[in-house]
Design a protein around this nucleic acid. Structure first.
Length: 554
RNA sequence: GGUCCCAUGGAGAAGUGGCUUAACUCAUUGCCCUCUCAAGGCAACAUUCAGGGGUUCGAAUCCCCUUGGGAUCACCA
């Protein structure tokens, strides 16, 4: 008779280590009381999803605020879906959002004593545990093909029973070791399944850091733990890795709640203490039919973190927004603290929303504007330049033509208590301030200028000509008074009141004059403060633009 | 369909039996300021907490039902 041990040895002859060896190799971490060891465990299947950024931000923050450890583990056991190079890209993206792991996979190398941190490189570790399970009769090889599985499922559906590989449907569960051995020798492809002792009709009590306590049916599925490609499945790898990497709290998406019974049983069977779990709400979006659904990378631009990077959103804007989604009291905190950072904010699991909330682009814009608004001219220029160099040649060209000039433009109404908040992202800068540059200006004035139709060409021309005398060397108030004086001389009312009292007596008001000038200099009706626009352009250029516009009128 | 979770305004939410004629933030709208815009200031926006029953002197808050929404049921993670 063939024993479990003999079978296990036959399947994994090369595995000599035991679980005890692994326990020694990965000792408990020596950390202060209350320190959390968290991890972000992405699959290298593409670029960073906004939901993943959300998750990793939380893991990072929780570890930081408890003086714990935040590490990254690459879950690359699905070789079919793997996209070459995306692991490195993931790390770069995280770094752009100031999420830097203390330990683990770093893209091109790894640090830490609990590695390897790439699952495909941990095959030997999984095998030690699987061999142990095999020896104990807690796992067994399964030879069922996809067709067999489909057949089982069909049968179950027809009988309205739960689908899956369990109980009497687990055909390979009670094969004799002789038969198993023979089929393996025969070269039959196989997977290894965990032998569940659970009963679906029994409930287990589970605890979750954000959901609290709830009941859920026991697992009774003999899940695959070792695939035919000799790599573990998620469930198994999670249990083994988080145990030996000594994770204290597993922070992951709410979609994992349903498989919690599997993980609970696996931990219990192995005699290991399960980590705490914190299942996060999933970020949602309303689709065309008015239904909520998960933010989808295929359908929603805002689902890809790269979108925000390429558009030039400040990383802080998105992070602040995501933090408000995590703990809604963060919003008040960050506003009270003038967006100065979150180091003193305590993220609490029990303050998380349980249901997924809708992604609100408007609020991302708001926080981004706020953030960009409080940067000084130097900082915003540096950031804009760094962004433009990578993603926006047009903007990069504008900045590098004359960085000081660009800085002054950025500085319009910036150095004050409540600065302008014109930009939520760098990519819109050229559209907003392009008129400051002659070549863009000359493109803009090819379109008809939006002058008020009540003014004849002659009036516009004479008014503009008179305004050439406007003194720019004054402070703002005196400058405006000067403009008023000239305007009055030209037949405009000094203010609205006077104009309204006797509309026939005037061509218009100073406001109209300011508008004429604004349109002349910027080719638009709306622009930043006229005084600063003129100061930055300079007297000479202003008068030149006046001449240009007058010539266009004819 | 089974299992689990959730349900306060356009959005994020506070609220854990009386302090709530429901806070705060974004969005929207209006007014003020004003050379336009941005910013700023002020105001409006749920007579009511999905609906219905109950418990209670008293419920958004506790219980039940209904309805609606979400998650999940792979050799994917």
């Amino acid at each position: 008779m063939i024993t479990n041990k003999q079978l296990a040895d036959y399947i994994f002859p090369e595995v000599k280590e035991t679980i005890e060896d692994l326990e020694k190799r990965y000792p408990n971490r020596n950390l202060p009381e209350g320190a959390e060891v968290t991890r972000f465990a992405p699959s290298p299947t593409g670029f960073l999803h906004t939901g993943s950024l959300f998750m990793s931000m939380i893991c990072h923050k929780i570890a930081k605020q408890t003086n714990g450890v935040f590490y990254i583990r690459l879950e690359d056991t699905d070789t079919k879906r793997e996209i070459e190079g995306s692991g490195l890209e993931l790390l770069k993206q995280l770094k752009a959002f100031n999420i830097v792991p203390d330990e683990g996979y770093l893209g091109d190398h790894e640090i830490g004593n609990y590695g390897p941190y790439i699952q495909s490189k941990r095959a030997d570790i999984y095998r030690v545990v699987i061999k142990h399970l095999l020896e104990q009769g807690l796992a067994y090889p399964c030879f069922c093909s996809t067709d067999d599985l489909a057949e089982i499922r069909k049968l179950q559906e027809s009988k309205k029973e739960n689908p899956g590989y369990y109980g009497k449907y687990a055909r390979c569960r009670d094969l004799s070791n002789e038969e198993r051995m023979e089929r393996i020798k025969n070269g039959d492809p196989f997977v290894i399944r965990f032998r569940s002792s659970g009963d679906y009709h029994n409930k287990i009590q589970v605890h979750d850091m954000v959901h609290g306590d709830f009941e859920i049916a026991q697992n009774d599925q003999d899940i695959v733990i070792y695939k035919s490609d000799k790599l573990p499945t998620y469930h198994f790898a999670h249990v083994v890795d988080d145990h030996f990497m000594r994770t204290t709290t597993v922070i992951r998406g709410g979609e994992w709640i349903a498989s919690l019974p599997i993980h609970v049983e696996l931990f219990a069977t192995l005699g290991w203490k399960a980590p705490n779990y914190a299942h996060m709400p999933v970020i949602m979006k309303v689709d065309e039919n008015g239904n909520k659904r998960k933010l989808s990378k295929r359908k929603d631009t805002e689902a890809a973190v790269s979108y925000f990077v390429e558009e030039g959103y400040p990383a802080e804007g998105l992070i602040i927004y995501l933090m408000t989604l995590a703990n809604s009291n963060f919003e008040q905190y960050i506003l009270d603290n003038k967006l100065e950072g979150m180091d003193n904010f305590k993220l609490a699991f029990d303050k998380f929303a349980i249901d997924g909330s809708l992604f609100d682009m408007g609020k991302v814009n708001f926080f981004s504007k706020e953030f960009l608004g409080k940067l000084n001219k130097h900082e915003i220029t540096l950031r804009a330049k760094a962004y433009a160099e990578k993603y926006n040649p047009k903007l990069y060209d504008l900045i590098t033509r004359d960085e000081k000039y660009f800085e002054e433009i950025m500085n319009i109404e910036r150095e004050k208590e409540n600065p302008r908040k014109d930009y939520e992202k760098f990519s819109i800068i050229p559209d907003v301030i392009g008129f400051f540059y002659d070549d863009i200006y000359s493109e803009l004035i090819k379109e008809p200028l939006p002058f008020n139709e009540k003014f004849s060409k002659e009036v516009i021309a004479s008014t503009l000509t008179a305004m050439k005398e406007l003194n720019l060397d004054l402070d703002e108030q005196s400058w405006f008074n000067n403009m008023k004086e000239i305007a009055v001389k030209e037949g405009y009312a000094a203010n609205n009141k006077e104009f309204k009292a006797n509309p026939e007596a005037y061509k218009g008001t100073v406001g109209d004059v300011a508008e004429l000038l604004r349109i002349t200099f910027t080719a638009r009706k709306n622009a930043p403060n006229l005084y600063y626009v003129m100061k930055i352009l300079g007297k000479e250029k202003c008068n030149k633009r006046i001449d240009t516009v007058i010539s266009l009128l004819k």
